[in-house]
Write a protein that binds this DNA or RNA. Structure first.
Lengths: 188, 188
DNA sequence: GTCTATATACTGATAGAC
DNA sequence: GTCTATCAGTATATAGAC
């Protein structure tokens, strides 16, 4: 892989693990196996590298979600599959993590890819739920926008609870709790 | 207020806003109006101050939750009130925020107050839901443990979505989505 | 208890040789 | 493109005077 690519990838990992303020140019260089001069040749500095890394992470997550939701099944099945998907729960969400960095949230350019990732995800869930209603699988009185936001929030909050507990259990409980409530709105 | 108290309070605020790695002794001193020597006289260093601040924040949040759940109403009403409570949503949760700090999560002593705060909160919600079932208000087939975890996750995830969007709207949507699903399990 | 002085390491970058 | 040298500023303290 090229040096700029390795630098971006290392920055993605470090932003995920340690956040913006916890990620130093030196650490990025060491993880990428690149020298000081090399990094500053390809990127103006830490903010430019962070932007490239955040955009890359956002694209990757959106592509992953797109793939997930193209699977077959009823609306509730597809959402349950999404919530139960194999995840490295204790590492947390690489996008959600960024919402705790004041430098990211305060900068419209850095925040935009994060905002778009969640907007896209919620939009995709709205589509799945609306389809379920159109097919007569789901209660048509269900508010699809609120329900979609709830599903994404359960996921992001599940990561928080799991990391607090040092265990994946609360994540799974929250996911199953949401799935059970959704399943109760299926039409038989 | 005494100097140690002001130092703890300043550390609480900075940990909330900027996290462990983003909080420097110098910034703590400035916010507290205390000098270098004064801070190191009262506390061994940053780790000790952080521990005191985290414990304090955990106690305060637990007390707040305790107060909230002692209000009257049906199980669903009390949970809805909790989710709709006046909050400074875009600032995020001072406890949930800490789960993104590797230094906090990796240290059992620093993580413990965070873990206990969420355990207590989920336990309190389990009690409210169980009471609702015992009183015949709520569907007795509802899994109270999973549902309680879901409610806390919606809250924590709602903060994440709101900060990503730069707007409180997704938080409120997620909360209303959860409330509507819960309300559907009430017995008439 | 609080202050100033001092110290080592790291942060984030620039300059210029190769 | 990559390397080494250099730099001002910050992080996180310790020492000792007052």
């Amino acid at each position: 892989m090229s040096t700029p690519e390795r630098l971006i990838e290392s920055t993605q990992e470090l932003l995920w693990e340690r956040g913006y303020v916890g990620t130093s140019p030196k650490a990025i260089q060491q993880r990428a196996g690149a020298g000081q001069g090399s990094m500053y040749h390809h990127f103006k500095g830490k903010p430019e590298l962070a932007l490239a890394a955040i955009r890359r992470s956002a694209e990757q997550r959106t592509a992953l979600a797109e793939e997930q939701f193209s699977a077959p099944g009823t609306a509730v099945e597809r959402i349950a599959d999404y919530l139960r998907r194999e995840r490295d729960i204790l590492r947390g969400c690489p996008i959600g993590r960024l919402t705790q960095d004041p430098e990211v949230v305060a900068d419209p350019v850095l925040r935009q890819p994060v905002a778009e990732t969640f907007e896209h995800l919620r939009g995709r869930l709205v589509a799945v739920l609306t389809e379920g209603q159109a097919l007569g699988e789901l209660d048509p009185t269900l508010d699809v926008v609120n329900t979609a936001a709830m599903v994404v929030a359960v996921l992001q909050g599940g990561y928080v609870l799991a990391r607090a507990a040092g265990s994946t259990e609360p994540f799974q409980q929250a996911a199953e709790g949401a799935i059970a409530l959704l399943a109760a709105r299926q039409l038989t």
